[in-house]
Nucleic acid binder design. Structure first.
Lengths: 131, 131
DNA sequence: TTATTTGTTATACTATATGTATAACAATAA
DNA sequence: TTATTGTTATACATATAGTATAACAAATAA
């Protein structure tokens, strides 16, 4: 799995890592039971500190996407465990709201906004994700 | 215009302010030419520091939503100035992507995601916004 | 011209977040 | 037992967020 980091981005490195791995799960590249690389290995590969990778893994664990065992390492969770719950809906809604608001201010129609969203989902389908 | 802040939120206060004002513009509550309160006044009303409000105004100016004059204060820009440009599309896309990815991981279908977005736009329309 | 309003800037301080660098600790599978 | 792996601790640097005060600067209105 190829992970590209943008060290100039205002998005923290550990968050970019979280996003990359979630994208891997969404597209089916990472399947339940798959192992993530050891923190030391991934840190070396990406040229970042071990603790940065560890922070990303902890975050993914918190979100329910992986389980972490000593020695076994980080493993992708089963699909059941990561189902959308009320907490997620609230977070999703709270994230989408300001984006929609600014879009309306900038004269994007509802239709244009939905089309943009559709494009993202089509990209996921193209890579093998089911949605 | 009523602005409610959540001091416990992980979203910075100045950013919550930015969102609130953008929402006001989206719904039509704030129209081109309308004045925002002086930084001191708004800061006092909200119980935050003057510089926090100033930061929000600077951010809104940067985004093209307001103009700031000495003495006259902050004024909502004309609709033309805040049209969506390539920079905004990129930002919007970059923000939507991880949300869509995580949604797919949590078994939201494309259709469910689009419905959720639609609800937000309907809320905007209900409040008088055009989209 | 003068006074007032308003945004702007400067300084200082606190707390938190992000990231690096090292090193040691602890569990567990082989 | 040993090697691997996650975990934790320290220390450090930098940036962000927010508060508190105060002074500066422009522009409008009297």
């Amino acid at each position: 799995m190829l992970i590209e980091l943008d060290f100039q981005s205002d998005i923290p490195i550990y968050m970019q890592l979280v996003h990359a791995i979630i994208e891997g799960i969404a597209t089916g590249e990472l399947k339940p039971g798959d192992k993530l690389p050891p923190v030391r290995t991934l840190a070396a590969d990406l040229g970042v500190n071990m603790l940065t990778v560890n922070k990303a893994y902890q975050h993914l664990k918190q979100l329910g996407f992986i389980q972490i065992h000593r020695k076994k390492g980080a493993v992708i969770n089963s699909e059941e465990i990561r189902k959308a719950d009320d907490k997620f809906y609230k977070r999703l809604f709270a994230s989408l709201r300001p984006l929609a608001m600014e879009s309306v201010c900038r004269h994007l129609t509802k239709s244009q906004f939905l089309t943009l969203c559709s494009e993202i989902f089509e990209e996921i389908e193209l890579k093998g994700g089911k949605c």
